[in-house]
Design a binder for these strands. Structure first.
Lengths: 197, 197
DNA sequence: ATTACTATATGATTTAGATCATAAAACCGG
DNA sequence: CCGGTTTTATGATCTAAATCATATAGTAAT
């Protein structure tokens, strides 16, 4: 379930840190020194443009790692890491992380797999944002999120309209209006304002 | 320079195939059976929306590989592969590719590095397309392309206005007008219609 | 050179979604 | 339960870029 079991991380010298909602873990354009894995809560990778408008590049919850590409690819962070809610994060120094990988080939492979999946997500969102109207973008995102869930029962999209907007490059008002319209047309179902698929 | 030396690819049973300009190598939503590496020419990964508008997710030239994420991540192709010009492509069956990786740890690592760099590119473009005006998008892309060049001399952007549009989610006319405006304001230099940085 | 095609150029018009403004629900901590 | 904050809702207006329509300039092949 976890990218790397927490016991193994501890063995290699990882520390657990706490992060309050809205706190920054690292900032865009700074150097990467650590491997991070969410132990509790949710972290988002996010970019802000000049007038504060944000775009969410990824959401990471318990068990998921984030911010490794700069470690593998040797470039500065391309975005900021911010706590979406109170979090606990496992933090492992870069060198220890590479030692851990060398000693665990299967985990090294797992990262290949994980990075590939993230490319899939980004490519999908990119194609959407560049050429599809709001309705299509939201539906594509929602269907992807559902498909990523292990159990295929009813899935409640756990994001606010604002977060959906920040993930699809739309404005809140547009997302609100589009979701309402889709509900009226019977294209989606809502349960206490959350999309259920 | 190459992701995998061609001799090594041959050792593991790779074949060279030819591809004419505008020919498809594989299509979106189909299964991935091969590892591909450009030997000559340029291949683009591209998506088309309902009215034929295209979005270019990546351009790959001699030495570069493409379309591996579906091999690593076990999902169908998220985009189409099309020859931008006449090409020669090395093609290696999936299983042989994985055998090659197992036998060459350094190459396996290289893919981690490569995938990370692609994530960087996609994240950058995504942030641009979602929240920045045409001028900023074009400049960011151009600067990135230059930064990727090994030699840091004068770099001529090798793409047409149409291709730049398809990489930034803009329309040709917008790219043409924006580039012209930037040139007049001295923000960029042109040499026989191509941007030089 | 001439033809045929591709790329660049430029004006006029339209439009989807952003922006602005304001309000009503829903949710949360003490 | 109350007061404050966050989230959802909705109407009115605006605007950047898309779209539409042509035209001109390059480029490649015969």
């Amino acid at each position: 379930m976890s990218m790397i079991p927490e016991e193994l991380l501890t063995t290699f010298g990882a520390r657990k840190i706490k992060l309050n909602k809205d706190e920054f873990l690292f900032a865009k354009d700074t150097e990467a020194h650590f491997y991070y894995q969410v132990s509790m809560g949710t972290v988002k990778m996010v970019n802000y443009n000049y007038d504060g408008q944000e775009f969410i590049l990824g959401m990471f919850k318990a068990g998921q790692s984030f911010g490794e590409p700069p470690l593998f690819g040797h470039f500065p962070y391309p975005a900021n890491a911010v706590a979406v809610e109170d979090c606990e994060i496992c933090k492992l120094p870069r060198d220890n992380f590479f030692r851990l990988l060398e000693a665990n080939f299967d985990i090294h492979r797992k990262f290949n797999h994980e990075l590939s999946n993230r490319l899939r997500y980004k490519g999908m969102i990119l194609s959407e944002v560049s050429s599809y109207p709001p309705e299509h973008r939201i539906l594509t995102l929602v269907n992807y999120l559902k498909a990523m869930m292990p159990n295929q029962d009813l899935f409640t999209v756990p994001y606010t309209r604002q977060q959906l907007a920040d993930m699809t490059g739309l404005r809140v008002e547009t997302v609100i209006r589009t979701i309402k319209k889709m509900e009226q047309e019977g294209k989606i179902k809502l349960k206490s304002h959350k999309i259920v698929v």
